[in-house]
Write a protein that binds this DNA or RNA. Structure first.
Lengths: 352, 352
DNA sequence: ATGAAAGCGCTAACAT
DNA sequence: ATGTTAGCGCTTTCAT
C-alpha cells in the first residue's frame, strides 16, 4: 500500500480510501491510484486491515463437525457456507471425530485466529470451556446437539419425537420385538433417540427388552456385526430401528447377508443418498441438514448484529419417509400370544 | 498482552516469550506470567503475531472444491484437513459450483486473507488469473483437474485410461452399442473420459455412434432424463458408461424405472457409497479421493518448505471394481451382424 | 479533498 | 535473563 501510494504520488490514506471505496476522493486521483494498484497487482491485506478497523471482525467463521466427510455434516457445511458467503465471510471447518479433546483444541485453533463466530457440533461432556469465548462476545451456536453447561443458541431436531414416530410406525405395522441400534452413548442425540424408542414402546404397552437394545455403534461395521448377532439370537427381533446413518447402512448389509431384507422391517434415523434405490427402499425419519446449517449460520449473524439476543433453542422438524423397509409386517407366528395387529390403524401424524 | 505484562509486573516481551515457549525465561518469572495470563484468560492473537513473525505465515490454507457437499470433494477435504492439522494449519474451504466467476472471487477472498497455500479444483477456462499469486510465492496445487495456462503442481488420475478400461470392460462382455453419458463439456475430466471411451471403441474396431454420446449432464436428474430417452430410442444401447457419480445415480434411477437394471449393463466412473448395495451392484472405475487430497496437501507443504521445486504432475491410479452391473451380457439379438463375443477374453489388466 | 501521526496486538532486533 | 524500540499493513483520528 505504501508502494502504491509512492507510485501514484499520493498519501497512503488516499490509497486506503480508493481501495475501500470511501468517499472524498476526486475522480482523477482515484483513477491514478487504481492504475498504480493495478501496476503493482496490489491486493489489500484483509487481516491487517481488520486489526485496526472498528468492530475488529476477521470476516471468518469456525465450523466444527463430526467429520467434513460425513454426508450429514457436509450438507450442514454447505448451508453454512452459503449463508456466510453472502456476507463475504469465509469459513474454517474441521472434524472432531467425536473426540472431546480434539473439539477443544480445534476451538482454540479457531479462536486464536479470531473467528467472528463459532458453529459447533458438540462431542460430549460439557462446553464450559467456552465461557471465555462467550465473555469476549463471540457468538457460539451449537448444531445438531444441545449445549451442556453453557447457555447458548442451538439448532436441533426433536430426536425423542422422531424416534418415537419411527418406533410407533413399526408398532403400527404389528411388530412387538423391535431392536434399537444406537450410536455412542456419549452422543446426546443417540440417548434421545433411545428415549424416544422406549417411550413409543411404553405407550403401546410393549415391555422393553434389553437384549434388543444395542448401543455404542459408531460405524457401519459395528452395526453389521451387532445386527448379525441380534438376528441369530434365540428370539430375534422382527424389526430394527437404527438410530443413525452409518448404523442403518451396516444393518442393511447384515440383513442382505442373511437374506432377511424382505422379512425383517427397518426404519432408520437420518436420510441418506440412495435410500430409495436399495431393495426394499429404506424407510427413514429424515432431518434436513441444510435447514439446520442455514438456521445456525443465520443465528450467528443475528447475534453478531445484536449481541443481547437471548439464547434461543431452535427445533426443526423431522419427517417420516416410507419407502418399503419400514412397512414390512412381522411373520404370522412372531407375535404369538399378543394381539399383533391392534395398532394397525394408528396414524403417527408425522409426515411433512 | 500488555495487560498480562502489567499484571505480572514484567515487560511485554517476557510475556511473548512465555506464551511462545521461547527459552531465556526463569521458571519463577514464567510461572508468574502464566498466572497472570490465566487470570485475564489471555489468548494470543495468532493473526496479529504472524503479521510481524518471520516467514509471515497465516497458518491457513484455502481449498476450492466443486462443492463441499459432494462426497467425492468431501473425501478430498477430509484428507487435506488431516495433513494440514498435523502442521497446525487451519483450512478455509468453499464451493465453486463449477462457476468460473465464483472460482475467481473465492480465490480472491482467500488470498486477501493471506492463506499460505491454495488447493483448487479448477472449474473451466484458464487459471492465468493466478499469475499474481504465483509471483508472491503462494503454493498453488490443482486437484482432480489439470491447470490451464499456468504451470503449477497438480494431482489428477489418468481419466483417459480409466474410461478406456471401463469401456473395454463392457466391450469384453460383448457389448457393441455402448452409450457415453458425460458431465459438462467445460470440465476437463469429462472430456478426458469421453476421449478414453472413444479410444476403447476404436481399439476394438467399433464405430462411434454420436447418438449414443450425451454430454453436459451435471446432476442426477439430467442423467435420468437422458438415460430414459436413450433407452426408448429405436436402437437403444445395450450398455452405459456414465462418467461421474451423480450421472451414474441418475442412470440407475432410469434403468430401474424401465425395469432394465438387469438387462442393460452399466459401468460408472467414480465410486460411491452403497454402490454395492443396489441390485445389481454397480461396477465402477474407482478413484481414491482421500489419496488425491493427501497428495495435494503434502505438495503444498513441500513447496512451502522449498519454493524452488519444479512443478510436478502427480497421477494417481484408478481401479476397476466389478460388482455385477458391468458384467451383464447383451441380449442375444443385440449384436446382430457382429461377432458379439470376440473380446470376451480380453483382460483389461486394470485391477489394483 | 488530502495527508501525517498514532496505534491495532504482536514479534524482531537489539539493547541491558 | 529481561526490557526497549521499531515496525508488520492497515485504519483511525485529527489536521490541513
Amino acid at each position: 500500500m505504501k508502494d502504491v501510494a509512492a507510485l501514484a504520488g499520493v498519501g497512503i490514506k488516499t490509497v486506503s480510501r480508493v481501495v475501500n471505496g470511501e468517499p472524498g476522493v476526486s475522480a482523477a486521483m482515484a483513477e491514478r491510484v487504481e492504475r498504480a494498484a493495478e501496476a503493482l497487482s496490489f491486493q489489500p491485506d484483509l487481516i491487517a486491515g481488520n486489526l485496526r478497523r472498528s468492530g475488529r471482525r476477521s470476516m471468518s467463521l469456525g465450523l466444527l463437525l463430526a467429520s467434513v466427510d460425513n454426508p450429514f455434516c457436509a450438507a450442514i457445511h454447505r448451508a453454512v457456507e452459503d449463508v456466510a458467503e453472502e456476507r463475504r465471510v469465509a469459513v474454517f471447518s474441521a472434524s472432531t471425530d467425536e473426540d472431546p479433546r480434539r473439539e477443544r483444541a480445534l476451538v482454540a485453533a479457531f479462536t486464536s485466529r479470531r473467528v467472528d463466530g463459532l458453529i459447533i457440533t458438540a462431542t460430549a461432556g460439557d462446553q464450559t470451556y467456552l465461557r471465555a469465548e462467550l465473555e469476549t462476545g463471540t457468538p457460539v451456536v451449537m448444531v445438531d446437539r444441545p449445549p451442556v453447561g453453557i447457555d447458548v443458541d442451538s439448532v436441533v431436531v426433536d430426536n425423542v419425537a422422531g424416534a418415537e414416530v419411527a418406533t410407533a410406525h413399526l408398532l403400527a405395522h404389528g411388530h412387538r420385538r423391535i431392536a434399537f441400534l444406537g450410536d455412542l452413548g456419549q452422543i446426546a442425540t443417540a440417548r434421545q433417540r433411545h428415549e424416544g424408542y422406549r417411550r413409543a414402546l411404553h405407550a403401546a404397552g410393549v415391555a422393553a427388552d434389553e437384549r434388543l437394545e444395542i448401543g455404542d455403534l459408531h460405524d457401519a461395521d459395528a452395526a453389521l456385526t451387532a445386527t448379525r448377532e441380534l438376528l441369530s439370537a434365540p428370539e430375534p427381533p422382527t424389526a430394527l430401528f437404527t438410530s443413525q446413518n452409518l448404523v442403518t447402512i451396516g444393518a442393511i448389509r447384515a440383513l442382505r447377508e442373511l437374506g432377511a431384507q424382505h422379512t425383517v422391517a427397518l426404519v432408520g434415523f437420518d436420510d441418506f443418498a440412495l435410500a430409495d434405490l436399495v431393495e426394499p427402499g429404506v424407510t427413514v425419519v429424515a432431518q434436513s441438514p441444510a435447514d439446520i446449517g442455514r438456521a445456525a449460520a443465520e443465528r450467528v449473524f443475528a447475534r453478531l448484529a445484536d449481541p443481547d439476543l437471548p439464547p434461543e433453542r431452535i427445533v426443526l422438524p423431522t419427517r417420516l419417509v416410507e419407502r418399503g423397509s419400514g412397512e414390512i409386517a412381522p411373520p404370522a407366528d412372531a407375535a404369538a400370544g399378543r394381539p399383533a395387529r391392534t395398532l394397525e390403524t394408528v396414524d403417527t401424524g408425522s409426515r411433512g
